[in-house]
Amino acid sequence: MKKYFIFVLAGLLFLSVVSGAQAKYRFTFISHAGEENPFWAAVYRGAQDASKMLGVDFMFIRPKEEGDLPAQLSQFKATLAQKPDGIIATIPHPDMFDEVIQEAIAMGIPVICSNTDDPEGAKGNARLSYIGQDLVQAGYFLAQKLTGGLPRGEKYHFLISIGGPGLVWAEQRAKGIITYLEEAGYTYERLDTSMKMDVAQSRIQAYLQANPQTKGVIAVEYNHASAAKAAENLGYKPGDLLIGGFDLVPEVLAGIKNGYIKLTIDQQPYLQGFLPIVQLYLMKEYGLGAWDVNTGNAVVDASNVDLVLELSGKRVR
C-alpha cells in the first residue's frame, strides 16, 4: 500500500541523514544561540576543523529559538543520556545549568564552558574551564575605546543595544559598558533590539529618529551593523555617530569598511570552537587538566579591517 511506501521512504531519509562513523571520542557542543545567529558559524567552523584534525566525532546542538534556555537544558539532558566523552556548553543562566553540569562531571564526563560563563565563574558552576571573553571587562573596554577622545562629563547620550535582555552574556557586557559610561558622566538608554538584524535595524532607526541627540550606539552583540545601516538610511555621514559593538559578522566588517562603524571587539569565536575540542582531546588522551583561556579583546577598526575581511571569507574570523 501507498502508506508503507511513504513510511519506508521517510525511514530511508532518516538513515541517510545520520552518519554512523565510529570515532575514538565523541564530543558534543550545546549552545544557547539560535540557528539563525551568524556569529556561531565561526565557532562551528573552529570546532569542526579541530575535530577533523584530531579525528574525533563532533556534534553541535542549538535551540530553535535564540536563547531558548529550557530547550538548551533538555538538550543537555538528552546529551547526558547519550554519555559522550566530553561536553562543551555555554552557561547563559546563573543557576539553571548548575545541577546538570555537576551531574555530568559526577558521571565522569568533562564539561568545558565556551563563550558564555556563569557570572560567578568557577565558584558558581562545576565546569572545568572557561574559554571565551571576560564579558564585563570587554564591555568596559569597548565603551572606553569607542568614546576615547570625547571630553568626559559632557552631556552625551548613548543607546545600548541589548539583543538578549536577561541573558547572562548580554547583561554582563552591558554591565561593563554602563559602568564606563557612568564613570564618564554620560547618559544612556537600553533597547531590546532582538538578535534579528532586520528587526534590530528598524528599532534602532526609530530610536535615532525619536532621540536625535544620541551621540552613539553601543551594541552588546552584532547589532552595531544594524545601527550603521540605520544611520545610513537616516542620512548621517560616516563618523557622525560613534557606533561600536562586538563580533565580526560580514555586515559589521562592511560597516567598518564604509566608515559607519568605528570599531568592533572580536572575541575570536574560531578559538571558542577550536580550543575546547583540543582541550577535551588532550584531557582524554593524556589525562591533562583543563585550563582557562581568555580569547580576547581583539580590536578591529579601519586600520586592520582588510586583513580581517580576507580571513572572514574563510569563515575563520
Binding site: 521517510a10 545520520v18 540557528e35
Partner: peptide, 30 residues
C-alpha cells in the same frame, strides 16, 4: 530528542516536524 541521540544536526528538526505534519494529514485523509 531522537535527533540529538542519533547525533544528527538539529537543523533537521524543523524538516522532520514539517514532514510529519503533512504526512499525518495526508494519511488521515487517504
Amino acid at each position: 530528542n531522537g535527533l540529538i541521540m542519533a547525533r544528527a544536526p538539529s537543523y533537521w528538526f524543523r524538516v522532520f516536524i514539517g514532514i510529519a505534519t503533512i504526512l499525518a494529514v495526508i494519511l488521515n485523509t487517504f
